Computed example of a mutant assay.
Amino acid sequence: MYVYVNGEILPKEQATVSVFDHGFMYGLGLFETFRMYNGKPFLLAEHLDRLSHSAEEVGISYSFSLHEVQKVLDELMMANGLRDAYVRWNVSAGAGGLGLQSGVYTTPTLIVYMKPLPTMPSSKRAHILSLRRNTPEGEKRWKSHHFMNNALAKQELFHDPQAEGIFLTKDGYLAEGIVSNLFWVKEGTVYTPSLSTGILNGVTRKFVIRLLEEQGTPVVEGLFTRTELNAADEVFVTNSIQEVVPITAVHHTMYQMSTVSDGLRQAYRKAVHEL
């Protein structure tokens, strides 16, 4: 694997950052994960827009044009011999002193990882996690280096590593998956937890909601409990790498794989083809 680090493309063994990088020391880092389809990044502008706004709120001075991003991606694809790929675009605060600082970080560390796509599941099982979703570090959740809550949740699934874990909030409301956003269908209406639960406003989440609205499917965002999920006709999760994944069961509750998730997958693939 070759990795991009601050203007250089390096073998992974040579890719390093400073031990004083505040992304390592204090978790002051942000990232976007997206997918390359035949050399083209999908929903790239949306990912970079979220990253830019998050960096501004965290206090990291960062800017990169779409043209510059595509140039980096082209170079990494050539180095790694890939056209379809998993990409993590990572911006950390950069090296600082020992101790927190209140000013803006003006020399961030940019790292871009690229690897072959993993095997894509046609469906998944899910489990309600006993570990509750932590609250966002700020007013809203960023896609940041603060991943301890997710890592501990993944350990909870050691008995079923291919399953997705579903977080509840501290108040018992449905939140999101460990690496996904959650949706379910009841009598033709699609439901998904509100951003007020503290979930990540996923780029794919927003895109899927837009696809549903274009199809004329009602979408309701709100505060929901396991009772609503148990009564659902079908359940699915979304993320930028796996797209739309039907959930066949949550614990012992089984769900059908019906027309809504199938239609979404077809619409998603059509959008990718148009790219």
Score class of each variant (00 low, 15 high):
Trp142Asp: 10
Ala79Pro: 00
Thr16Ala: 12
Trp142Tyr: 15
Thr259Met: 06
Val104Glu: 10
Ser180Glu: 00
His159Val: 04
Tyr191His: 06
Ile60Met: 03
Asn230Pro: 01
Val190Arg: 04
Val237Thr: 04
Leu168Ala: 09
Glu32Ile: 01
Tyr26Asp: 09
Gly94Asn: 08
Leu117Thr: 05
Val260Phe: 07
Asn38Ile: 09
Lys12Pro: 02
Phe20Gln: 03
Trp89Gln: 05
Tyr105Ser: 14
Ile178Thr: 15
Val17Tyr: 09
Thr119Gly: 06
Leu200Trp: 02
Tyr26Lys: 09
Glu234Lys: 04
Val237Ala: 07
Phe207Lys: 15
Glu13Leu: 02
Leu51Asn: 04
Ala249Ile: 00
Gly202Val: 13
Gly198Met: 12
Gln162Leu: 11
Glu32Gln: 13
Lys206Asn: 12
Val219Asp: 00
Lys170Ala: 13
Asp84Cys: 12
Leu174Met: 03
Glu187Phe: 11
Asp160Leu: 02
Ala79Ile: 03
Phe158Pro: 02
Ala231Glu: 10
Met254Ile: 14
Glu243Phe: 03
Leu117Pro: 01
Ala45Ile: 08
Leu51Ser: 02
Pro193Lys: 04
Ala85Cys: 08
Lys186Glu: 14
Asn181Glu: 08
Gln215Leu: 13
Asp49Phe: 12
Gln256Ile: 08
Val72Gly: 02
Leu98Phe: 13
Asn134Trp: 01
Lys143Arg: 12
Val17Gly: 01
Thr119Gln: 12
Ser92Tyr: 10
Lys124Val: 11
Lys140Tyr: 12
Tyr113Cys: 11
Ala79Val: 04
Asp84Val: 13
Met257Tyr: 11
Asn201Gly: 15
Pro118Gly: 09
Ala231Lys: 13
Glu137Phe: 15
Pro246Val: 03
Asn90Gln: 13
Leu100Gln: 14
Ser130Met: 10
Pro246Thr: 13
Arg132Phe: 09
Glu156Trp: 02
Val190Glu: 01
Thr119Phe: 08
Gly177Asn: 00
Thr107Val: 00
Asp233Trp: 08
Ala93Thr: 08
Gly29Val: 14
Ile128Thr: 09
Pro161Asn: 04
Ala175Pro: 10
Ala249Tyr: 03
Phe147Ile: 14
Val250Lys: 05
Thr238Glu: 01
Ala55Glu: 05
Val250Asn: 05
Arg133Glu: 06
Ala163His: 07
Ser144Lys: 08
Val185Glu: 13
Thr189Gly: 04
Gly59Thr: 07
Ala79Leu: 01
Ala175Met: 03
Arg205Thr: 05
Glu164Asp: 12
Ser63Gly: 03
Val220Gly: 01
Arg50Pro: 07
Pro108Tyr: 10
Val185Tyr: 10
Glu8Tyr: 10
Asn181Trp: 00
Pro11Ser: 07
His67Tyr: 11
Ile60Gly: 02
Leu182Pro: 06
Ser65Trp: 06
Ile60Asp: 00
Lys270Arg: 12
Val272Ser: 03
Ala232Glu: 10
Gly23Met: 01
Pro246Asn: 11
Gln101Glu: 15
Glu274His: 13
Tyr37Glu: 04
Asn90Arg: 13
Val19Met: 10
Leu157Val: 11
Phe34Trp: 11
Gly7Trp: 09
Leu76Glu: 06
Met257Gln: 14
Lys115Arg: 15
Asn149Gln: 01
Trp89Lys: 11
Gly29Trp: 10
Asn181Lys: 04
Arg88Lys: 15
Glu137Gln: 14
Ala271Gln: 10
Val5His: 05
Arg210Gly: 04
Phe183Gly: 06
Thr227Ser: 15
Tyr268His: 13
Glu187Asn: 14
Gln155Thr: 03
Gln215His: 09
Lys143Leu: 13
